[in-house]
Amino acid sequence: MNMPMYVSPEQVMKDRADYARKGITRGRAAIVSVFSDGVLLCAENPSNTLRKIGEIYDRIGFIGVGKYNEFDQLRVAGVRHADLKGYSFSREDVDARWLANQYAQTLGQYFTHEMKPLEVEIAIAEIGEESGSDQIFHLLYDGTVMDTETFVVIGGETETVKTRLEESWKSNQPLTVVLNQAVNALAGPDRTLKADDLEVAVLGRGNGRRAFHRIENETLDGHLSEN
């Protein structure tokens, strides 16, 4: 009789985590940060079509790093889930905390039950009615959820980027300042990132019902040139 080889659960989980982490750290980092009038989502992304940032609902935005097809599936699932909930109940009943829990369940499910874990790290942000009430949820490949009201760095080299951003970051700063801090933190001392290398969007309190707004081309250049 063939006996299956015994592998301890600790080892299985560690292998899976290592596998997922390896996939995620290969990519570039991305930053989500609050500013005085909303939330900034900023990623290093040379592609103009394969997006890392997306609109989920009126006041909710998404950012993902890692394997594109996997985080994009999660983004679309989030849009579907939010639109369904808004359709069944009301638009104001759709919130990020609930969505984060759903994402956590799905990620956790993949991590423990599927062939391989999802090689993604995502964050979702929601702006509140006034400054100071914005929320950012940070989700890991295994379904771990963390929430913050300041900023979060996801993807590769997170610790280095985080240390760089921490040096300059303050609460209640205007968009241009936070954007430049984020871009400098992503770039590091040896590189400069241009508008073409970046994907930037904001959830702005002044943008009406749909707060999500991309910052592209000349507008982005304008912000970066004030550095």
Partner: peptide, 26 residues
Amino acid sequence: MTLPRFSPDSDPGPDFLGLLQRLDRS
């Protein structure tokens, strides 16, 4: 209500009405 997941051959794509149909909610 959990996050809707579809296999590639039954994915409604960007069609919200198709999504409602698949979930029997039309």
